[in-house]
């Protein structure tokens, strides 16, 4: 049994994506790019919403977000994550929880 990719896992989940209204945003891309050494969000986000591109830029796509809050709390040196809940009814919709 090979390990399951995070995308395949998220495929099992139910979402209602609020297109065009991401509930989490990187405040200043430049801080991730040049000031943040660890880029922990790219490793720790359980839904792998944060990826690091070849040029060192961090890209955030919130569609698979599990709304846990990890990214906001670990970004405690640069405070570069603007985190809100999705609008009512949107986002992850757990079937079993």
């Amino acid at each position: 049994m090979s390990t399951v990719k995070v995308e395949e896992r998220l495929f099992q989940n139910r979402y209602r994506v609020d297109s065009g209204h991401p509930h989490i945003q990187i405040k200043d891309n430049e801080i991730c790019h040049s000031k943040c050494q660890g880029k922990e969000c790219t490793h720790l986000c359980p839904a792998a919403c944060y990826t690091q591109e070849g040029n060192g830029r961090v890209v955030l796509i919130t569609d698979g977000c599990l709304e846990c809050g990890t990214c906001r709390i670990i970004c405690n040196e640069h405070h570069n994550v603007a985190w809100e809940y999705p609008r009512g009814g949107y986002g992850i919709l757990f079937k079993f929880g």
Binding site: N13, L66, C68, F94, G97
Partner: peptide
């Protein structure tokens, strides 16, 4: 059969 993946603090 895995049917849901969740994360929580």
């Amino acid at each position: 059969e895995m049917k849901e993946y969740t994360a929580h603090l």
